[in-house]
Simulated scan of single mutants.
Amino acid sequence: MAPITEVEGRRVALSNLEKVLYPATGFTKAELLHYYATTAEVLLPHLRDRPVSFLRYPDGPDGQLFFTKNVPPGTPEWVTTAEVPRSEGPARMVLVQDLPSLMWAANLVTEFHTHQWVADDPGEADRLVFDLDPGPPATVVHCCEVALWLRERLAADGVEAFAKTSGAKGLHLLAAVRGSSSERVSEYAKALAVEAERAMPRLVVHRMTRSLRPGKVFVDWSQNAARKTTAAPYTVRARTEPAVSAPVTWEEVARCRRAEQLVFRAGEVGPRVQDHGDLLAPLFDRRRAAALP
C-alpha cells in the first residue's frame, strides 16, 4: 500500500518513491515530487482555475506515455473539477487549485498542460501563445532570433511578451490578452506567424508540414485554439532528462549562442526562482493584458 502523507489537511497517497524515472540521470519519483512541492508557489498560479490535461509517463519517458483530459479514475473527491465545453459535448476536467491537488497529480507522474482560458470563462482567451519549434539542424538558438523579432512585433501592437523554454528543444512566448475569443487570438497569432515568415523566409515557417521544417523554426500559432493546450510553466517534461519548461529573461534569450544555455533541469529551477522570482508573474496583472488590434 502506498504511504499516506498529509498535505495541508488532505490525505495524499504517494507511491513508488524510489522508482527511477529518468535512467540517464538517476532522477527518482521522490525527487520529482520534491521538485513540485518546492516550486508550488510559482507553479500553482499558472495552473489555478485552468482545466488541466495530463501527459502521464508513470514508468518514465522511455515507457508508455498517454494523454488524459477527463478526470482520471480514482480522483479524490476533494480535488476540484469543472465542466468544460467540447465539440462532442461537455466534459469534466481537473483543476489543480492547491498544494494537495498538485501533489496528488504529481504522484501520477505527469506533465501539466493548460488551455489559454480559465474554467469560469471558456469563451474568452486570456493568454496568447507561440510555440517556436526548431527543425534540425536548427536549434533553440534560432528560436531565440525569431522570439526577439516576435517580441518587437507584438510590442508594436501593445502586446507584452514573455518567454520560457519548452522543456524540450524550443521556446514558448506568452502574453496576457483580454476581450478576444480563442478564434480571434488564433487569427491574430497566425497573421503574425505569416508575417514572421515573410520577414525571415530562410528561418521561419508557419505551416506544420514536416517537409518544410528542416533547418527552420516552425512558429506554431495553432495552440491558441480553444481545444488546444500548451505545457504549463514549470512543468517537468517527459524527456531524456528532467528538463523543465522554465521562464527565461529576455537578456538570456538575446545572449543565447548554444542550445545548452537554455536547458534547465529540475534541480536548477529552485535557485533561479530565488534569484528572479516568477519571471511570468506579470501575466497575472490584468492592467497589462492587451486588447488585440
Rank of each mutant, 00 (worst) to 15 (best):
Val129Gly: 02
Thr110Tyr: 09
His142Cys: 07
Arg127Gln: 13
Gly135Glu: 01
Pro137Gly: 12
Val118Ile: 14
Leu150His: 06
Ala138Asp: 04
Cys144Asn: 00
Cys143Ser: 10
Glu145Phe: 03
Arg151Cys: 11
Ala147Cys: 13
Pro122Cys: 11
Asp133Ile: 13
Trp149Arg: 12
Val140Trp: 00
Cys144His: 01
Asp131Pro: 03
Glu145Arg: 15
Phe112Gln: 00
Asp121Tyr: 08
Asp131Trp: 01
Trp117Arg: 08
Cys144Lys: 02
Ala119Ile: 15
Trp149Met: 15
Val141Asn: 02
His142Tyr: 03
Arg151Trp: 04
Gly135Gln: 01
Phe130Cys: 04
Cys143Ala: 15
Trp117Thr: 09
Thr110Leu: 06
Asp121His: 10
Glu124Ser: 15
Leu128Thr: 09
Arg127Asn: 05
Val129Arg: 05
Arg127Ile: 00
Arg127Val: 07
His115Leu: 11
Pro122Tyr: 04
Val140Leu: 03
Pro136Val: 10
Thr139Ala: 10
Pro136Ser: 13
Pro122Phe: 03
Leu132Ser: 01
Asp126Gln: 11
Thr114Pro: 09
Val118Ala: 14
Leu128Gln: 01
Leu150Ala: 05
Thr110Cys: 10
Phe130Trp: 11
Leu132Val: 04
Ala125Cys: 09
Val146Ile: 11
Val146Pro: 02
Arg127Asp: 09
His113Phe: 11
Phe130Ile: 08
Cys144Phe: 04
Glu111Val: 12
Val140Asp: 04
Asp126Lys: 06
His113Gln: 10
Leu132Gln: 03
Phe130Lys: 03
Arg151Thr: 09
Gln116Pro: 14
Gly135Thr: 05
Ala147His: 08
Ala125Val: 09
Thr110Ile: 13
Ala119Glu: 15
Leu148Trp: 00
Trp149Ser: 00
Arg151Asp: 03
Glu111Met: 11
Glu111Ile: 03
Leu128Ser: 05
Pro134Glu: 12
Ala147Val: 10
Thr139Asn: 06
Thr139Ile: 08
His142Ala: 12
Cys143Gln: 07
Val118Asn: 12
Trp117Glu: 09
Trp149Glu: 09
Phe112His: 05
Val140Glu: 02
Glu111His: 06
Asp121Met: 03
Arg151Phe: 02
Asp133Trp: 08
Thr114Trp: 04
Cys143Tyr: 00
Trp117Ile: 11
Ala119Gln: 14
Cys144Leu: 05
Glu124Met: 13
Pro122Leu: 07
Pro122Lys: 07
His113Ala: 04
Ala119Val: 14
His115Ile: 07
Ala119Pro: 11
Ala138Tyr: 01
Gly135Met: 01
Pro137Glu: 10
Val118Leu: 14
Ala125Lys: 02
Val129Pro: 00
Val141Asp: 08
Asp131Lys: 07
Leu148Cys: 01
Leu148Val: 07
Glu111Ser: 08
Leu128Asp: 02
Leu148Glu: 10
Cys144Gly: 12
Thr139Cys: 09
Cys144Asp: 06
Val146Met: 03
Ala147Tyr: 08
Asp133Tyr: 13
Glu111Leu: 06
Pro122His: 08
Leu150Thr: 03
Pro136Met: 10
Asp120Gly: 15
Pro134Leu: 13
His115Met: 15
Asp120Trp: 15
Pro136Ala: 14
Trp117Gln: 07
